[in-house]
């Protein structure tokens, strides 16, 4: 029985000295390597998830996985009865052909490598690139995946990412935002400034330093414009901005300070009189002659 099995494994496949047994060993090595690679990367992610940034962890996992596969390939290749030096030459020519044939793929690949080295963005960052705003979901070798604010999946080729202007909203620790708040001319601007400053002081994420600034910025057509500039941690910037604006509005109104509506004062000549009567929408005044 065993001799029959070994006999089958020794069956030549018609390519050099390659036998069925060698092909099975070759495939088995690759499969074991792929399985081991997957196990190792899963364990790496599990054990290092709280010690390394997600971006670094993903990159390390990928490098480890592909390294295991490459090593396994070199271990397994002799079973195919192949001359590896010949493979290198063939590989070089193949790479050249592929390079010419698929310039954009190579360009994206190289851009991906540069992005990984330069790292203008990281996984999880809030960015704008190539006119698309969202969160970086993943950075692959050929493309970068963005999740837009409305949850849409966007795949951007790395060449576009690399050659576009990238705005990373969270690259710096803090960023500033601004409100312009109009109050009526008869309201006390100093009191309004004090109320707004107190609210900013009480908000945990409105940063103490750089200090916020609140000042009368403009005497507008309909309102005195108070400018409010606040620094917040980049990651909480949006929450602070949306939270504080309404609190300011409510606090000002509680203090009797109101945001005015646009208005225009009209001065009419003495002889112009308002015509009141049927069809005007107002009750006729009996003292006015019609």
């Amino acid at each position: 029985m065993l001799s029959r099995i070994f006999g089958v494994l020794d069956t030549p496949l018609g390519y050099g000295g390659l036998t069925l047994g060698n092909l099975i060993i070759f495939l088995a090595i690759l499969l074991i390597a792929a399985f081991a690679g997957r196990m190792i990367t899963v364990n790496l992610k599990k054990n290092l998830s709280d010690k390394l940034p997600k971006n670094d962890l993903e990159m390390i996992s990928k490098i480890v996985y592909y390294l295991i596969l490459v090593v396994a390939l070199f271990v397994a290749l002799p079973y195919l009865d192949m001359d590896i030096s010949g493979l290198f030459v063939a590989g070089g020519i193949f790479a050249l052909v592929i390079g010419f044939a698929s310039q954009s793929v190579v360009s994206n690949f190289v851009s991906g490598l540069f992005l990984m080295v330069e790292r203008p963005v990281k996984i999880g960052d809030n960015i704008e690139v190539a006119g698309i705003k969202g969160f970086v979901e993943d950075i692959y070798v050929l493309s970068t995946v963005i999740r837009t604010y409305d949850g849409t999946y966007m795949r951007i080729p790395n060449e576009s990412v690399f050659t576009s202007n990238i705005t990373n909203y969270v690259a710096n620790a803090a960023r500033r935002f601004q409100y312009s708040i109009g109050i009526r001319y008869e309201d006390d601007a100093d009191r309004a400034i004090a109320i707004i400053s107190d609210l900013i002081r009480a908000h945990p994420f409105a940063l103490d330093t750089p200090a916020p600034s609140v000042f009368v910025d403009e005497l507008g057509d309909n309102a005195v414009i108070i400018s409010v500039r606040i620094w917040a941690p980049s990651e909480n910037w949006w929450d602070v901005k949306t939270d504080l604006l309404w609190k300011i509005k409510v606090a000002l109104e509680e203090a009797g300070i109101h945001v005015p509506f646009p208005q225009r004062t009209l001065w009419l000549p003495e002889e112009v009189r308002l015509k009141v009567g049927r069809g005007s929408g107002a009750e006729p005044d009996p003292t006015v002659r019609q």
Partner: peptide, 16 residues
């Protein structure tokens, strides 16, 4: 105690 945060250092390189 009510918390309050600040930036130590410049926005580009400092820490919250």
């Amino acid at each position: 105690k009510a918390p309050k945060y600040t930036l130590y250092g410049p926005p580009a390189e400092g820490v919250i």
